[in-house]
Design a binder for these strands. Structure first.
Lengths: 168, 168
DNA sequence: TTGAATTTTCAAAATATTTTGAAAAAAATA
DNA sequence: TATTTTTTTCAAAATATTTTGAAAATTCAA
């Protein structure tokens, strides 16, 4: 079964890459499983598909919802909760970028601001130190605002043109 | 001693943040120590300053050189090797972005390309699967090329204007 | 209400990563 | 060359993170 094989490879690859850049492997695997699934899935299905424990599934489903990558779906007549992934890959990328911006850039900007506050440039040494702090602050704010612009840019002119060009 | 305190806070903060986004804590601490140091330092000095083992220092110094964030400096009359950090923070940011692009985006592009190769769209299911793979491919290539353009942009018009605006 | 089904929690176990430190290798000196 | 200094390596230890699974909490139907 060739498709099954490709899907497994996809899930495995996604999980491996994720760990290499600081994201939990299981979270990535659950995400890709749902991304590839036409139907929404419940915890038991995910458990048996990925061979992981209930607690693990539960915890990572909640994280994925926090990241805005999956949604809870309540099926009429079903007691169990079902989950479905956001299938619009541009939205997915946007969410990931947003979350990483929040986690990686935000705290850095705050930390540099605190350091700036605390030190008066009354010696050459302190000026040196503040120069570095200021420079990092500047670059970080630059990265932050660049990313924000990109994220706010209307995807319809920014991406759809790229999609058209690359997808054919 | 206020400056010492601020420097320690800087080193500590940098180290903590780094772990939160997948970079080794010690590597980040050594980097910030060198970034804040006017003089180059040798392994023994770094060991005693950060209270870490020789092996750890050695390994992380090599990683930092791989990242292009520090340089080896051979001082005349000295047997020991000295290390000095790149102080141009824009260059530092550029190096970090390059390295992360190489580690995070490159493998993803490759993996998606492999999957595209391996599957023929001869059923609706396979077409579905390939759509996702293609979309990820597209978004990833887009991110890659956007980042590449930013990195290639001449810093003198792109950044220095920002620096002037924000630094005052 | 009660009780069965489902989800959540969290301490302990398993796994993965980082750090140590001493031995080996390499480099410099005499 | 032999000796000393310095750097590198890497198995074992320490630490950190992830996963498990059973108990507790919650939800829902009757």
């Amino acid at each position: 079964m060739e498709l099954k094989e490709a899907k497994d490879k996809f899930i495995h690859t996604w999980g491996t890459l994720a760990t290499q850049w600081g994201i939990n492997r299981t979270m990535a695997q659950i995400h890709s499983l749902l991304l590839l699934s036409a139907k929404s899935m419940n915890a038991d299905e995910i458990m048996s598909e990925l061979q992981i424990s209930r607690g693990n599934v539960n915890m990572n489903l909640r994280d994925l919802m926090d990241w805005g990558l999956i949604y809870k779906q309540l099926l009429p007549g079903e007691r169990k909760e079902y989950f479905i992934a956001e299938k619009d890959v541009w939205k997915v990328a946007k969410q990931i970028a947003k979350e990483r911006r929040r986690r990686e850039i935000g705290p850095l900007i705050d930390a540099m601001a605190d350091l700036k506050e605390g030190i008066k440039p009354d010696t050459a040494e302190k000026e040196e130190f503040l120069k570095i702090v200021n420079d990092i602050s500047t670059v970080t704010v630059f990265a932050d605002s660049t990313l924000t612009s990109l994220l706010k840019a209307d995807e319809n002119w920014l991406i759809s043109s790229f999609v058209k060009v690359f997808n054919r």
